[in-house]
Amino acid sequence: MSDLEDLYREIILDHYRSPRNRGELETPPAHRAEGFNPLCGDEIVVYLELDDESAGEDAVVSQVRIGGQGCSISQSSASMMSAAIVGKTVAEVEELTRSFKAMMSIHEGELDGDEAMPSGQPGESLGDLEALRGVVKFPVRIKCATLSWNTLAEGIEEALAD
């Protein structure tokens, strides 16, 4: 079961069993975005509050809450994401999102025998999120891991559009 243990690292199961930042925020001032994985029925709700929306890319994520339901991969990814982005600026969150997605797609590329695409140095900046690296061996699960990130991006877009 080595592939499986690679997929279900202890830290992933820990975030699944004890999700961080679970709950809701009042809207407004928070923004609410909802994401679905039609494949497996997972639903993620991201509540996002920025300290100063007029600051654009420099606005800081002051609070995040996660709602919805889903598998261990989608839920742990959302939990780790929520822990990683509080206190970061929108620009930093977007960079983190790029790094996280790069980690997914690098490995997709390697599975196809392609050269890894340049990605910056995701290993350093991703922290706990590194644990989700094993997901790329299970291509159908990549959507589970990226669901919360895509939902977060919608939330940010909405927050900045106001």
């Binding site: 079961m1 592939d3 499986l4 997929l7 279900y8 497996c40 997972d42 889903g70 598998c71 261990s72 991969i73 839920q75 299970f138 699960r141 589970c144």
Partner: peptide, 11 residues
């Protein structure tokens, strides 16, 4: 979760 269950069953 069913998705996790079926992943392990697949093994």
């Amino acid at each position: 979760h069913p998705h996790d269950l079926s992943q392990v069953l697949n093994q």
